[in-house]
Nucleic acid binder design. Structure first.
Lengths: 358, 358
DNA sequence: ATGGCTTATGGTAGCGTTAACACATCGTTG
DNA sequence: CAACGATGTGTTAACGCTACCATAAGCCAT
């Protein structure tokens, strides 16, 4: 006893396939034994088939199939300090706009065999921070965040751990790492200028509010400011009675229309910060027999599928949602690959789409 | 000393903070050293604070903050053979229906500190199989699959690795593990019977087609069959000219309407397998000045937000999307917790919603 | 005082994989 | 024909954490 202080290996050498407990998943070693090679060769055959002799590879593939072996990314990640996991955080997935970005992103990342951790922040910076922490705990190879304003702790964690990150949907002068989007201010500015050019005066703006606690966000704010600036630059008077806001849904769009026309019957056009609200307003006009755009012109933002289907078809701003997701993926891949010369901020632009509602 | 042949530790003891390479993330051990405890105590303080003395916990929390320590789930998962990762696979996220299920699921799982791996199968069993394999490689604690028909390999992997699994959206007599949904056949049956009860004869059905290669799926097929059965049980003649199909979007809904009314002007009602198509048809009727429901009645499926907003408001079938997601999460949590007595198949039901379009 | 319980903490040995070398074999080349 | 690079495979030691015991200290009942 006295001289047996170090390893007492024989005691607890439970290695494998003991009696009790649930059956453990097959390991690389078992595949290796069956194929008559070493584990590292199996590992190579699975990750980088080209460097293993074809004949060996065949035996390994057979063994894998027979045993029903499934890789263990956790062990792999630990050993290699690398993962193929990407984290993406959006405020909600009930908005097709975000879904579209995720879609564009997912397609490209999927092709490159990355997996997606999805986080929904519900427009809360607090939740976002928790999600970022979780994703870092997974040692995600990269992160995608919505918008350009984030809590200070988020920024600190991301830079200190040097995780490739893409912020999307807005343009930032000080991105955490990379940034893909368009200028919401410019887009709203362009639409309002367009309306002015069409001859409308008294152009109102409606801000969509979101989240469980209704509030706006950097994108919505930028749009409202863009509108304001366009009014100023057009020499139109600005007046708080030209502004309204409401929940981001059809009904609130209708309500905002009624509210605005009630207190300012001289309004000639209403620019909604979101297509859904604009569509709601359009339907309300129809219900009330108000001619669009003769009595009042309606413009939206987003160019959702709705815009082309409502009557009259909706003038709106087309945002590059799918393209943003795709581009974000491409940049992230470059970044993960070690390319440090990728552009920091990518402006994807937007288009003002003139249809029949203005 | 003499008996020191094995480990030659001193040789490659690069342990940490060498010169070269990117800075590695902080480890448990560093936190432990700073807090004057052992690593295992830190581990406990992080995972199960209650069993660590409050005073110790405080010192640890301080050290974690100061060092900026972020847990490593990969290492944890390897050591404990447990993860807090759940995989969910949906055919697409561009359909709000699926988004809503994911939402209901996410909320509940998020509260319990699980992370979500999102997979999009694009309606392909092949892709689904790849995703399942990837998620198993992550050693996901549980899986959520859309629909009840899956490739044989999927079933094999899931059962052999004994991973808690919930299939949703349909009812299966032979679930892989658990199943939460409603009967699409019964729902369509109920709607058609409802239309018959309202006095309509010649009731057509339109199947939505999906995916990059347009095709239907188990849910759509069940709905069509439910409709057929209802026609039979009502003594109405069945005739292929009462059936149409088209891509799941507004325009195709309009097209299907025109096609059906063109070849069968005696049709009195059209039951669309999806609200979006029904809304498209409604808009087309309006454009053409066809009175709904007088000239032709329109019914949809899904009760999306659209249904209450279009004019006239759409009669449809309400499916329990959010509830399905929530229930799936609850069942999965029970299952992961080791409860083997959870119900295998949970029927969430549906509601026929009568509005103005029929 | 003894034993037994509870609470708080620590030591040791894996968990299943891959990085970094090491080595063996073979065809080339000057 | 020795030296050499290319090719294919193996050996060893981490990777960072937690399960599983062990231990220490305090408390209570005997």
């Amino acid at each position: 006893m006295a001289s047996k202080p170090p390893t007492r290996k024989p005691l607890r050498k439970r290695k494998r396939g003991d009696e009790a407990g649930p059956p453990r998943a097959a390991r690389l070693e078992e595949v290796a034994r069956m194929a008559g090679v070493s584990p590292i060769t199996v590992s190579r055959a699975l990750r980088n088939p080209d460097i293993v002799a074809e004949e060996t590879r065949g035996r390994i593939a057979q063994a894998v199939k027979k045993i029903g072996y499934v890789r263990n990314f956790n062990a792999g990640a630990l050993a290699s300090r690398k993962t193929t996991t990407i984290g993406i955080i959006v405020p909600t997935i009930m908005d097709v706009g975000f879904a579209e970005v995720v879609h564009g992103f997912y397609d490209t990342m999927g092709e490159h065999n990355y997996q997606l951790l999805l986080g929904v922040s519900d427009y809360s910076e607090e939740v976002e921070e928790r999600l970022v922490r979780d994703f870092l705990a997974h040692r995600a190879a990269g992160l995608i965040l919505t918008g350009v304003s984030h809590g200070p702790e988020v920024r600190r964690m991301l830079t200190s751990m040097a995780v490739p990150t893409v912020e999307f949907w807005g343009l930032s002068r000080t991105p955490i790492d990379l940034c893909v989007g368009y200028s919401n201010a410019d887009a709203a500015y362009a639409m309002t200028r367009h309306l002015v050019r069409l001859g409308y005066k008294k152009i109102a703006f409606v801000s969509p509010l979101i989240g469980t606690v209704m509030r706006d966000n950097d994108r919505t704010r930028d749009r409202r400011e863009g509108h304001r600036k366009a009014l100023r630059d057009s020499g139109q008077g600005i007046d708080e009675s030209l502004f309204a806001s409401g929940r981001l849904d059809f009904q609130s769009g209708a309500n905002a229309l009624v509210e605005l026309m009630g207190k300012r019957p001289d309004i000639e056009a209403i620019f909604f910060g979101n297509d859904v609200m604009a569509a709601g307003a359009l339907m309300e006009c129809q219900k009330r027999g108000w001619a669009v755009p003769d009595k009042v012109a309606i413009a939206g933002f987003g160019d959702s599928e709705l815009a082309t289907v409502v009557q009259p078809a909706l003038t709106t701003v087309r945002t590059p949602r799918h393209a943003m997701g795709k581009r974000a993926a491409e940049l992230l891949l470059e970044r993960i690959g070690g390319n440090t010369k990728v552009p920091k901020v990518v402006d994807m632009g937007f288009d003002v789409i003139q249809r029949d509602s203005t």
